[in-house]
Design a protein around this nucleic acid. Structure first.
Lengths: 106, 106
DNA sequence: TATAAGAGGTACTAAATGGTATTATGTCAA
DNA sequence: TTGACATAATACCATTTAGTACCTCTTATA
């Protein structure tokens, strides 16, 4: 359950990888095309893509001799859903009520 | 902008820290109380709390000789909102449409 | 008031993990 | 077969994590 989020959150913890996700949100890209958008070697970019794949945030598909990387909406959605645990706090009125109750208890 | 998320995502990348957030969602806790819920030293837990604070996910308030840690809903909300960038993908119909269009292009 | 105990803060260290570059090897289409 | 693309292995350096030890500050009490 919570363990499923570990790879995903680790993948999101790097700014380069979040940048890659933004790129792939625009269009699918090969490794070389992704690498063109960053000042680092293709090998380094490839490892970031592997981390994103392990985090289930993208998928890879071989097309001829290239490999196309595609955003995985399901994986991203699962990450977003982790925050649902805190839904009770989003509503300011509920949060205020909660803190008032806690004050009374003390 | 995006930089603001860096500390937050780094804070969420650790399972212990996510566990701490779940604890604090139940009730505010001192450092010692948080540490009682994990099999690691108080010093280690304290460091995790500092990371969470730097990520704006919790707040700390000194009360006498104790320090009370409180969940920061605003910080969590900002993290969740990062995913809004991908809103176009949540809707399965849009995603399907997108992939169909791409097929046509190829 | 003096002092001991409790809570927290920090510096230092060691181990583990992560990021990148380099180099070498493999694969496939023109 | 050549060149573009991809993968694998290695090495080096930076960062992260957790533990130990010692420090300050607050509170309680002899």
């Amino acid at each position: 359950m919570n363990q499923a989020h570990q790879m995903g959150f680790k993948a999101l913890a790097d700014p380069t990888r979040r940048g890659i996700l933004h790129l792939l949100a625009q269009q699918d890209m090969t490794i070389a095309e992704v690498a063109d958008n960053f000042q680092m070697t293709r090998a380094a970019v490839k490892k970031h893509l592997t981390v994103l794949k392990d985090g289930d945030l993208i998928t890879m598909q071989s097309v001829g001799r290239t490999r196309v990387n595609t955003l995985n909406p399901d994986g991203l959605k699962q990450m977003r859903d982790w925050f649902a645990y805190f839904d009770a706090f989003w509503d300011d009125r509920l949060a205020t009520l909660k803190s008032e109750i806690e004050k009374d208890i003390k």
